[in-house]
């Protein structure tokens, strides 16, 4: 704990020192950023922006993960389906989500739907691949047990396949979190948003309010950190058997 505080202090000091030699436009001093944060903390808009970004990312992440797991399960169960869709899937996966924004606008307009969709899109593509990897790592013995005990397809998925793949799926969701946040921010900046942290950063930079830009950046970092920690916590609770050599 002491070392963590020390680490934060060192970065803070280095930042302060660096800001003495650099134009405020590029790097405002951390003290002025904190002052700005305290000032903005009195307005309800800041909390609203944090909440809106969190809400969109969380919903997008959940929806994307759910679709990704179902799609990954189907692709993993039916080899021919995977072979058929492998090429188009890999092609679509190579396209950065941001490049598809114009298409998404046409499809979903500029409202909240499109901002939730971009996070879901980014998540889904990663979770599909991780679910597939999970499938390839199911122990041979456990597959045989499902066969020996004559488990139905549903029972096999529920008792053998999904739990075996779960550590991989969870890793996929945690990786997607960072991607979902990235595309969410970009969407809030460019897809006609009126709120959210991405909109705040973009709007502040266009009037050269650099302190506020950095407030937005810090809050985004904090949001990502909190989401990641929450997910790690849930992962340890749910996938309790992981790391026990089982």
């Amino acid at each position: 704990m002491k070392l963590r505080v020390l680490g934060i202090l060192i970065i803070f000091l280095a930042w302060e020192l660096l800001s003495l030699f650099v134009d405020r436009l590029f790097l405002p001093s951390p003290l002025s950023v904190i002052n700005k944060l305290l000032e903005l903390a009195h307005t309800s808009e800041l909390y609203n922006d944090i909440w809106v970004t969190f809400e969109r990312t969380a919903i997008g992440l959940s929806v994307g993960a759910a679709i990704g797991v179902v799609a990954g399960t189907l692709l993993g169960s039916f080899r021919s389906l995977y072979k058929t869709l492998q090429l188009p899937m890999d092609f679509v996966r190579s396209i950065p989500a941001t490049a598809l924004f114009p298409l998404f606008i046409v499809l979903f307009g500029l409202g909240d739907t499109v901002k939730i969709f971009v996070a879901a899109w980014a998540t889904c593509l990663i979770v599909i691949i991780n679910t597939l990897y999970g499938f390839q790592n199911i122990s041979h013995t456990r597959r045989l047990i499902a066969k020996l005990k004559k488990f139905s397809f549903c029972k096999t998925v529920r008792l053998i396949i999904l739990p075996s793949a779960l550590p991989f799926i969870a890793a996929g969701i945690r990786v997607s979190l960072a991607f979902a946040l990235i595309v969410e921010l970009v969407a809030e900046m460019f897809l006609g948003s009126q709120n959210g942290l991405g909109h705040r950063i973009f709007a502040a930079s266009s009037i050269l309010e650099m302190e506020e830009v950095y407030v937005g950046i810090l809050l985004i970092g904090l949001l990502g950190y909190v989401l990641n920690s929450a997910m790690l916590f849930a992962e340890r609770k749910i996938i309790h058997w992981s790391g026990h050599g089982a």
Partner: peptide
Amino acid sequence: FVFQNYRESLLPWL
């Protein structure tokens, strides 16, 4: 069927 690898034949999530 009793497997040689008993650990792997159990389901650790249950």
